[in-house]
Design a protein around this nucleic acid. Structure first.
Lengths: 348, 348
DNA sequence: CTGAAAGCGCTTACAG
DNA sequence: CTGAAAGCGCTTACAG
């Protein structure tokens, strides 16, 4: 037998009919004799005929593939986004081509090129940390290929985005701490130059303001790289300064964990003396002791939503190019912030 | 201007030459006048010409895409595998198309079909838990499409595989516990019907035998689903039975964590009274208290290796279809198993 | 009810 | 040094 997968031609030859007829028989085209139709279908079945998507793509000028540029697949949050993209894409009959930039600008640009060469029908992108120059993205827009940004907002680009409501997430976290009775709340902040970092600081401040608690700039500590160690050091310094502290809102879970370590070592009880809330809600939040209250980001939902916006773009349903879809976070309450009474209510 | 991306035809028309010439000029074909060559290249640059990979695929009968079937992208281990696949594939100029089966047989079969339709040059697959019937995979082999299995071994299929040395990983873990002075080591085992579960039990037993420690079947506790809760319950039962225990080897990290919880609650010290070793080495192993010694699986390396085997298949370099590449695990020592003296040596 | 032809974008053996 | 033609697998407007 012939090597490789069976084609329409193979079937046509065996049946002594034309390719056109086979093609039509395969797709229930009206004017086809039941007899031919039957014969074609049987043979297709027998040889496991599968339409050649490459040929179809060339003819239809559409590949039914969507390209994804993602900083790192290994990051938990991004892996949930990928999962959402995959599920939504598959549901709509699309395949997904993934490139990770590894946070490198050059690799991001190369990947965009590869995906454009592959003629993907659309691009879902979360830019790398290094990316400042947007020329490679502008080209995509210029050539009319639908693009949707997720998680990392890109300013000045004519494409829809899906992001998380970082302001509200931070606000909720801090408000929760206040409701628990905290008055002196420290914020372990992310780098100021990232939009998300700034948004969370804003949320922190607004929550304090709305509850008539004075904002103390000394209570906002920038943790640049968000490691555990960094947070341990920052927290140790704070605790030994004699400053009154009864709550910590960390802009990421690792930092929260570092804070918890320092707090425990200094002899304070969590949450009785100092409550702690983190951000991201990784799996380990429920595993540490005490378990960590955290702001959950809807990664899976973000992936699906980005896909949906993409399909709107592809089908020109969406006229509003500048759509920014903002997804709600959810505060997941655990032991590190909840007083006994509240915990009972949650876990009953 | 014309919508969509520029083609060879567009360039040919503008320059009033034939497509053949443009094609040749673009790829430094010898017999082309420097003048034509120059003109073509300038125009290509100007219009951001990118070869249409779809057309190339159709002509070359090869897509330079490799398909990946993976149970779940959200699982940390698998996300590292994906990362390895991505990096290796990109290095070789391949794109990666990913489908997650979500552990569903039906979805796995559908994904295989989609990928075969897309005419991927090869398939990297880790089968779903549900998969018993292998017909969909046999079809792939029959149609001559290279396939490589990773992580989950499939018996009776003519295709290379990459797996982790679960026997040795377990052996190392248990031997380490013995060297720490443990004599009564419990194994929280995985389900017997999975090959990996059986291999780890074998490793556990061999390590005991080689050190002349009698094997006690009561010390092997099956934890079917590997959750934390399950391990807590199993461990509680063991501890309250009055049985002497000074070491625990859990077949997965969550179970190890559960065991630690139960041990601490019962008033024992880790590692002084009871040492604990887990399996998988997730990020949280270094975050819990005490940090958890664990057997690290080389996911990233597995992804790369699977890719390399795939390329060998594609280029017919590999004549040995039944290759099984077994990757070494690495025991990552942390606090939960190492006595003071050892820890100092490690962390100094 | 069926077939021949053209075309999607590209390459290359064959002519000139 | 350059071009016309054929072909990768498929679909569909046009004829019959």
């Amino acid at each position: 037998m012939k090597k490789g997968q069976v084609t329409i031609k193979d079937i046509a030859k065996e049946l002594n009919i034309s390719c056109s007829t086979v093609s039509r028989a395969l797709k229930d085209f009206p004017g086809i004799s039941p007899h031919t139709r039957q014969a074609v279908r049987e043979l297709a079945e027998k040889y496991h005929y599968r339409p050649n998507a490459v040929a179809l793509s060339l003819r239809n000028q559409r590949t039914n593939i969507i390209g994804v540029i993602i900083p790192e697949t290994v990051h938990f949050f991004f892996s949930t986004v990928i999962s959402g993209i995959e599920d939504e894409a598959m549901k709509e009959g699309y395949n997904v081509m993934i490139c990770q930039s590894n946070e490198s600008f050059e690799r991001e640009a190369d990947s965009i090129d590869a995906l454009m060469s592959a003629r993907v029908d659309g691009l879902l992108v979360s830019i790398s940390r290094e990316t400042k120059d947007l020329a490679h993205l502008q080209k995509v827009v210029d050539e009319g290929v639908p693009m949707v940004f997720f998680d990392r907002l890109v300013e000045g680009m004519n494409a829809p985005s899906v992001i998380v409501d970082d302001y509200q997430g931070a606000y909720d976290a801090v408000e929760h701490l206040i409701k628990q009775g905290c008055r002196d709340i420290v914020h372990l902040a992310g780098p100021e130059n990232l939009i998300i970092g700034r948004k969370r600081i804003e949320g922190y401040k607004s929550a304090l303001e709305d509850n008539e608690i004075p904002i103390n700039e000394d209570s906002i500590i920038e943790c640049r790289n968000g490691t555990q160690e960094e947070a341990v050091i920052a927290m140790n310094k704070l605790l030994s300064s004699g400053k009154r502290i009864d709550g910590v809102f960390a802009n990421n879970d690792l930092a929260a964990l570092g804070a918890m370590k320092a707090i425990k070592k200094a002899g304070f009880k969590i949450p009785e003396d100092i409550s702690v809330v983190g951000y991201s809600d990784w799996q380990f939040c429920s595993l540490v002791d005490p378990s960590l209250t955290s702001v959950a980001q809807p990664g899976y939902e973000m992936g699906r939503e980005a896909c949906r916006l993409m399909f709107q773009e592809i089908n020109k349903t969406n006229t509003q190019k500048s759509t920014i879809k903002i997804l709600d976070t959810q505060l997941v309450l655990r032991e590190s912030s909840a007083k006994e009474r509240v915990l009972q209510a949650i876990y009953k």
